[in-house]
């Protein structure tokens, strides 16, 4: 009987997160200019949000960045909000802003120096890690790592979430 209960509990554990939508937890972080930015603010006006976790020491993250900047430039005015979250801890956070400048990133970059947001979205801290949040606040797509060509699939997913042909 206890075996049956354990099995049922495991089944509930598996099914529960799948039956529900993957609701994106709200968060508030400081950006590289110390301004407080929250997910709920980014989602205003029914925007979809592309959250990209990265770090200054992560090579694939830096290869991916120009493609995210291109998405931001192309679709930012059509309802897409791109936001980068630097997962560098406090000790290397001084290196974030120079990197953002040298990469010519114009989308907001937030500092998660206390591992608070990465713990919610990406607890194993796989980098880069990208989450697409639709206008209803649900995580509809996530991608770990970066390989050449991934940006094509990402753009397709963003267009789908925007409802843009």
């Amino acid at each position: 009987m206890s075996l049956l209960r354990s099995f049922a509990a495991l089944l509930v554990l598996v099914i529960a997160p799948l039956a529900w939508a993957a609701v994106a937890p709200d968060f508030t972080l400081r950006d590289i200019n110390s301004k407080s930015v929250s997910l709920s603010e980014l989602r205003k006006n029914n925007k979809i949000v592309l959250v990209n976790f990265w770090a200054t020491w992560c090579n694939p993250c830096q290869v991916e960045m120009p493609h995210l900047q291109a998405l931001h430039a192309e679709l930012g005015s059509q309802g897409l909000a791109v936001v980068g979250i630097a997962t560098d801890d406090a000790r290397s956070s001084s290196m974030v802003k120079p990197l953002v400048y040298s990469k010519k990133l114009s989308y907001p970059v937030l500092l998660d120096t206390q591992s608070s947001v990465v713990s919610l979205y990406n607890p194993n801290k796989v980098l880069p890690f990208t989450v697409l949040i639709n206008s209803a606040g649900e995580m509809v797509y996530s991608h770990s790592g970066y390989n050449a060509g991934d940006e094509v699939e990402l753009r397709t997913k963003v267009l789908a979430a925007l409802g843009t042909p």
């Binding site: 529900w20 939508a21 609701v23 639709n134 209803a136 606040g137 649900e138 509809v140 409802g163």
Partner: peptide
């Protein structure tokens, strides 16, 4: 276009 989920799914969820 993305299909909107039912309202009950929007308030709670998991991943």
């Amino acid at each position: 276009p993305e299909t909107a989920p039912p309202a009950w799914r929007r308030s709670v969820g998991g991943h």
